[in-house]
């Protein structure tokens, strides 16, 4: 559990970071370092071994500002989870995100971990994290979890990998139609959260579409009047655990019926898993137990449980119902 040697640099500008990333011989050779709460564990576990780390915390162009801009709540990539949990703007405009932050990790980790790093963190899959066991996501031939100890794994994996995305925040952000702004050699681009998180495939054994030379700058959440949201998370202990399953739901009521409905599940796929089928079941309907149950069933309709994770179907269904109930109450 000790890291290999590496070099450490504190670039003065974001441009220097982007240039260094672009010039790196491989994606893992040079890595940006923000809070480091995920990266250092990957290095200690010998899952990645960068030659060089570039500190992102002391340069111009990247920040931890949280503000309202053009009717969006914008959070700088260096915003800590503590700031998301306790900040007044997030609390006012996106309480589900604050709740997701409060249910993530521990005070010490939240004080250090950043929003950008949280979105980019790698899966907790115990095969992925065990350097002795080859796995597809690490460049191996096959996924050992498919036939192995897969109680914590995915119900919806359109990928050789059945690990689940570990981020609580990402699940909520997808339900809020957030966009992720990144900058690379080719300049800045804003990516819808649904396009940012993509299931790993042969050409891209990662859970997102961030380019090798790109850095996450900020996340923006559109403020839709009347929209409320909720986040429910099931853990195998009361605190300090990644989600077994989580559910983020949001909608607004328009003349008593639900509109702009979002239903997103965490812990069930390699990425935050949006169910348009569940959303369609709810859209235009009045909130109520029957329609919630139908939507929850729709959300899990295509689930493909592995040997040990069938419980997640039942759990996810009920978490969707709970989250929808809470949105209704809010």
């Amino acid at each position: 559990m000790t890291m290999r040697t590496f070099a450490y640099a504190q670039p003065e500008s974001l441009a220097d970071v982007i240039a260094a990333l672009g010039a790196a011989p491989s994606r893992d050779a040079v890595r940006p370092l923000a809070g480091g709460t995920d990266l250092l564990t990957l290095m200690k576990g010998d899952i990645v071994a960068p030659d060089r780390l570039l500190d992102l915390k002391r340069l111009t162009g990247l920040d931890d500002t949280v503000e309202i801009r053009d009717n969006e709540l914008v959070l700088g990539a260096l915003t800590t989870l503590t700031a998301i949990e306790t900040g007044s703007l997030v609390g006012e405009h996106c309480p589900a995100l604050a709740k997701a932050a409060s249910l993530a990790a521990t005070p010490q980790l939240r004080n250090r971990a950043t929003l950008g790093g949280n979105l980019l963190q790698r899966p907790r899959c115990w095969y992925f994290r065990e350097h002795l066991i080859p796995c597809w996501l690490k460049g191996g031939d096959a996924c050992p979890a498919r036939e192995g100890e897969n109680g914590l794994h995915a119900l919806f994996a359109d990928s050789p990998c059945v690990a689940v995305h570990p981020s609580d925040l990402a699940t909520v952000l997808l339900a809020m139609d957030a966009t992720v702004t990144v900058r690379g050699d080719a300049g800045e681009r804003a990516i819808a959260a649904g396009d940012f998180f993509v299931q790993p495939d042969e050409g891209r054994r990662r859970e997102n579409t961030l380019g090798g030379d790109e850095v996450v700058l900020s996340v923006a959440i559109p403020l839709i009047p009347g929209r409320t949201s909720a986040y429910h998370k099931a853990m195998d202990r009361k605190a300090w655990a990644f989600a077994l399953v989580s559910a983020a739901c949001s909608f607004r009521l328009d003349g008593g019926v639900m509109r702009d409905v979002r239903v997103v599940l965490g812990g069930v796929a390699p990425i935050p898993w949006r169910s348009t089928a569940a959303e369609a079941a709810l859209d235009g309907e009045r909130p109520g137990a029957d329609v919630f149950a139908r939507a929850a069933a729709a959300a899990l309709a295509g689930a493909e449980p592995l040997r040990h994770n069938g419980y997640k179907v039942h759990l996810a269904r009920n978490l969707v119902i709970e989250a929808l109930e809470e949105v209704t109450r809010a």
Partner: peptide, 27 residues
Amino acid sequence: CDMGNCGACTVLVEGQAMYSCLLLAVD
């Protein structure tokens, strides 16, 4: 644990509680 899983290494950095096992000294 040396992996940010236990809290025994908690110190205050600029007044905030953090796991010192997940901080680089150079950082």
